[in-house]
Amino acid sequence: MNLTGLDSGLDVGVDSGLNAEHDIELLENFATEIGSEGSVTVRGGGTQWEVGGLPKADAREVKAPTGVWSFAPADMVVRCGAGTTVAELNEKVGRAGQMLPFDPPSPAEATVGGLLAVGQNSYRRLRYGPLRDLLLQIRFVNSLGQLIRSGGPTVKNVSGFDLCKLMVGSLGTLGFIAEVILQCQPVPEASRWFSGEAMTIPNKLLTELWQPSSILWNGEQVWVLLEGHRRDIEAASQSAGLAECEPPVTTELTSFGKDSRRISLPPATLKQLPKYFPPGSFIAEIGVGIAHLLADQEVPADMLPQPDQRSVALQREIKARFDPSGRMNPGRSVWRDCSV
């Protein structure tokens, strides 16, 4: 096996008590458990278990390895098993003033691998970008039960095809994530929510504010998360006429729970939401395009991007070639309409 990159890092702030041979053993055990025969699924914390449909009942359930295996603060990269919880990961890198801006609703249960496999991004994506851009290297187990590596341990890399991107959001239908190397971010000095009135879409805040972390809008009110130096935050909120408030993400609508729907829309179409839904019944991520709706709210079909048929055919080809016997997460689909 190719071990390139496994031993990079200083292990600062992490006392895992593990060594590279031990990590390899855990990874190989995981690959052996998945094997090459029979339907199989990997369960993380189960916090987003319903996304894409439930795996068929006969699928064997396997757990990914856990542990933060190396962390180099001066490289701002961390390597961990896919079964590691987001809370544990953030606790470890937090000791060096760093973080992974993943923000799942239940970080103590949600696993890194599960989060990447589902691919739903944080409400702070506006500033930190999507999850996929923080994933530097991946090891996954393919349908033959082999460990496959893609990407590299450095923050910049164009060495071959980028299978990391293919795996993020693929719901474990092409391979099972075993281990990842992620790019950390510095924890901002201050982080504060503000709000104000906004009867029309507050797109102008995108230009007025410098790198806001989040702008949420419900048709009558706007919430803004500003992060950085506290004096800059004060000055920016004052000039934009915003008042400090409680974080809105604890409200029912944005809890990403079972009673809300999460829709991905072109950001230019968000302004149409009040035409269909009364103010206060939705929350839109301005500049990003995610809309959180109540469970019974249907978005008109013409607002949703239509799947490109040639692209879908190509994706089916990829599924067929990566998982010829259809044993990986049978029953689960990355397409809304499985009949497409």
Partner: peptide, 13 residues
């Protein structure tokens, strides 16, 4: 143009 298009990330590959 939506942030999380459905299906695999062929743009990314």
């Amino acid at each position: 143009e939506s942030p999380e298009p459905e299906g695999y990330d062929l743009r990314g590959v």
